[in-house]
Amino acid sequence: MGHGNENALQHPEVQLARSGHIVFGYAASLALMALSLMVVVHHLAGPATMLEIVSGLAFAAIVVQAYFWLRLDFSRTQAWSTVAFLLFIPLFVLTIGLTAWMFAGLYARTMLPGMMH
């Protein structure tokens, strides 16, 4: 096609790589996961609250990795990938969330009290 082999390294997606971003993404992701571990191991809150906190930390880790590692932003190089990702997120969340909600309701409505826990 149009571009020669010698230009491949000049491609914008190759040029996205940055050591600083890798290091920051690594440190931040690890810190967020360590924090999640601390919260759970030390039972810093009730189960429902702990789940909310850990969910928040997981979401933060995903955002950090999406920006610093996957380099998803609205630059010309990455905009379409970012848009695809943003459109995919509700699909992912709803697939899991609606399923969990459906069955939580089902369990509450159909199971014998002794079977619940």
């Binding site: 992701s29 996961m33 969910s55 997981a58 995903i62």
Partner: peptide, 10 residues
Amino acid sequence: ALVWVCVYCF
């Protein structure tokens, strides 16, 4: 790594 975050947390 992203999927593992979800596996680890959830």
